[in-house]
Nucleic acid binder design. Structure first.
Length: 273
DNA sequence: GTTGCCTTTCCTGTTT
DNA sequence: AAAACAGGAAAGGCAA
């Protein structure tokens, strides 16, 4: 496997995305929604702390629970530790959200195993989608690719049920129709400062104000995610401006490259309180 | 095949 | 002067 192209951006990213992203053989190759190829680590038992964190964000997001409702620090652990928690442990760690989390992780453990069998050989994108939690297992260096993916999509309040799991190859991926939305992509870069090589930074964390530091670099990453090599900040920003109307973003007047999350943007708030 | 959502692309004009 | 910002308009891609 090799890096398909070697733009400045890519070399920058592969080197600056953080010391713990040593996936030299996993360049930023991803084609649109088929980027969720990383099933080899689809089993939560093997998740890193970061992946655990990501899973948390998604479950909260999916269930429309404000992340500040639970002490995320209680989940400062890797997948192995997470999987060893009992139902009661989840209750202790997350209160009323505990059961939801427990349920989710139970499903994932289950389907992770299942998936391994499926995926012995080379996994094709189609197969990846069969993973109920496809994006969770991407390599750490690719946070911008998948932070927000579709957690197991559900219409019901409690997303992960054994039923869903069993028929995951069909249902589960349906929800987040087109994968991560732009604002989620932006949010997820912001939420991962350790892996965000100076692309975007918070201006006011509690108010949700942030600023693009490398607008074109972000645009390129977005384009990469969408398999669109001609993405530019100009075009990306047009999409951002459409968010004003939907109140996913609020205008910040007079400050270039500065945006603010609006009432309809979820999952960006600081979790601890 | 149609529809709706979410961009993407292009463009003209304005502001910083 | 260059880079951003503002939006309108239309097209594209995708899933339901």
């Amino acid at each position: 496997m090799s890096v398909t192209s070697s733009t400045n951006l890519e070399s920058q990213l592969t080197t600056t995305w953080g010391p713990n992203n040593s996936y030299p053989d996993v360049p930023l190759v991803m084609s649109g929604y088929t980027s969720r190829l990383w099933t080899r680590e689809s089993q939560p038992q093997f998740w890193s702390k970061y992946q655990v964190w990501e899973w948390l964000q998604q479950v909260m997001d999916m269930n429309q629970i404000d992340a500040s409702n639970i002490p995320l620090q209680n989940f400062d652990m890797d997948g192995h530790q997470l999987c060893s928690l009992s139902y009661q442990d989840f209750i202790r760690a997350a209160g009323s959200v505990g059961p939801i989390l427990f349920h989710s992780i139970t499903d994932l453990k289950w389907s992770g195993q299942y998936h391994v069998d499926l995926g012995q050989q080379e996994l094709k994108p189609e197969l990846d989608f069969s993973c109920p939690f496809p994006d969770v297992s991407y390599p750490p260096g690719e946070i911008y690719d998948s932070l927000t993916h579709p957690l197991a999509p559900v219409a019901s309040p409690t997303p992960s049920s054994p039923d869903i799991k069993r028929s995951f190859s069909h249902q589960v991926k349906k929800h987040n129709p087109r994968g991560t939305h732009l604002w989620e992509f932006i949010r997820d870069i912001l939420l991962n400062p350790e892996r965000n090589p100076g692309l975007i930074k918070w201006e006011d964390r509690t108010e949700g104000v942030f600023r693009f530091l490398k607008s074109e670099a972000v645009a390129q990453l977005w384009g990469k995610k969408k398999n669109n090599s001609s993405m530019t900040y100009e075009k990306l920003s047009r999409a951002m401006r459409y968010y004003y109307k939907r109140e996913i973003l609020e205008r910040v007047d007079g400050r270039r490259l500065v945006y603010k999350f609006g009432r309809n943007a979820r999952g960006w708030r600081e979790s601890d309180k």
